[in-house]
Amino acid sequence: MQEPWRRRFGARLARARALLGEFYTAPYRGAVARARRDEDDLFMLFVYAELMGVPNPATYYTLELQPLLLERFHEWHNRMGLERSPLDHFRCC
């Protein structure tokens, strides 16, 4: 069994590490999340480009990802300024 002081020290160290992590993350949390979302949006375009009539040489590789990303499709087309689903055969709304 660990000594109580060692446990306390370990807990304090973990707390300090968590605070340091928050100090790093907190000011830019929103900016980083938005940047990540922008990257995801571009990726969504790669995956669904062919279905919307945009030729995409990578479709062969991205095809199997389509069903996996369908859940995000509605939010994505809304964010891109399309009120209704741009796909004829897939009506999410």
Binding site: L19, E22, F23, A26, R29, G30, A33, R34
Partner: peptide, 11 residues
């Protein structure tokens, strides 16, 4: 993302 309750020492 933007709205997250944060420890006051961090802020």
């Amino acid at each position: 993302i933007d709205y997250v309750p944060t420890n006051r020492v961090v802020l």
